[in-house]
Design a protein around this nucleic acid. Structure first.
Lengths: 197, 197
DNA sequence: CTATTTTCTAGACACTGCCTAGCTTGAACG
DNA sequence: CGTTCAAGCTAGGCAGTGTCTAGAAAATAG
């Protein structure tokens, strides 16, 4: 057996990758730093060089989650056509991510992540900016209706995702819910300024 | 010092009460069975007679949370006047609870609570039924629009609550959001069957 | 009064996160 | 090229946790 080199080389990346697997299988509680080190073939203290805390690991996972969700929304937006359809696609992309990554979503929207500073909140802000882009070019900066519409849309997606991941609603019911939500939102008076720029 | 009697008498109730205090102060992670036993003045194994698991304790707290939220919604409904106002009051009651009991809400809507059986899910169902009553008497059983409206309303409240508790939105922004949401929902075509029974 | 069941105690075990001291290695620098 | 130096890793230890067990104490039932 060739002994593993002392320096792993890219331990951090491996840990993050394995951590997400563990997260998916055993939830947040099932994520142990020591077990993670064991699977990576390093000593139990090794992860500390890359993540000062267990919470630091969770933060990194949450940040990664926000970035991936942002990418998913962006790519849904890339192949989007006429205007009302854009929101349907974005909403479905959002909820799809939430369903496929329920454990990560739980990290992303944990009350722990409350410090407005920090990379996690920054990643969340990036996601919000992407949602902003979905609404097309801003007519006037500080558009009140526009911001309120965005929050409404975000709340709708997040709420729907929660209802599905907590099994309060089936997946297909969730799809109907998304379509209803986007339909209702786009039919509201808050959307008029977006539809007629 | 008079020694505490061997039998505590109502340990379960005391544990639940103290657990909620600990939950509020230190979050889910800060809730320790041993510390709980210490505060109650019993041995570390005592809680096991009432909660087989740590998870069983969390389940009980979640169930209690659902019941309290249901009560809060009910009492908001009790003093409600004209129709459109009912939803505003219910939504505010819901979100108020979520803000004041963020840690408990996290338990209530954790992905762990996924078994459709069990008292937690039952308590959640009771909450949903209460939401149903908020819509007034059902015209026809199995009203599709009615159910879709209910889900839309639930998703809206839950999403708004999440946005606030995760500090993505301030409390006052949240209040605007709730009013916007109820306004938009009640102006939608899904609400027509409710407004004209 | 006795038998049984519930409630609690006390000890043990495996496991966890975190801290510390020290070894190994790659890289920077004179 | 040789020497520092910092980063990455090991290994041991500590306090704390959840869970299991055997058994004592008390309430309850017969």
């Amino acid at each position: 057996m060739t002994p593993r080199p002392f320096h792993h080389g890219n331990l951090r990346a491996v840990l993050l990758e394995q951590a997400e697997v563990m997260l998916r299988e055993g939830g947040v509680d099932g994520l142990s730093l020591r077990e993670l080190a064991r699977q990576a073939g390093v000593s139990h203290g090794a992860p500390r060089s890359h993540f000062i805390d267990r919470q630091a690991l969770l933060d990194a996972l949450a940040e990664q989650g926000f970035d991936r969700l942002t990418d998913q929304v962006r790519s849904a937006l890339a192949g989007a056509g006429p205007f009302p359809e854009r929101f349907r696609l974005v909403a479905h992309a959002y909820v799809d991510f939430a369903v496929d990554n329920a454990a990560v979503m739980e990290l992303m929207f944990a009350t722990k992540m409350n410090d407005a500073a920090g990379p996690v909140h920054a990643a969340a802000t990036r996601l919000f900016q992407t949602l902003d882009e979905a609404m097309g070019p801003s007519a006037a900066p500080g558009d009140g209706d526009r911001d309120r519409f965005k929050l409404l849309f975000a709340a709708m997606m997040q709420g729907t995702a929660t209802l599905i991941t907590t099994h309060r609603v089936t997946r297909s019911q969730g799809n109907v819910l998304i379509d209803d939500a986007t339909g209702v939102l786009l039919g509201s008076h808050l959307a008029t300024s977006l539809l007629q720029p």
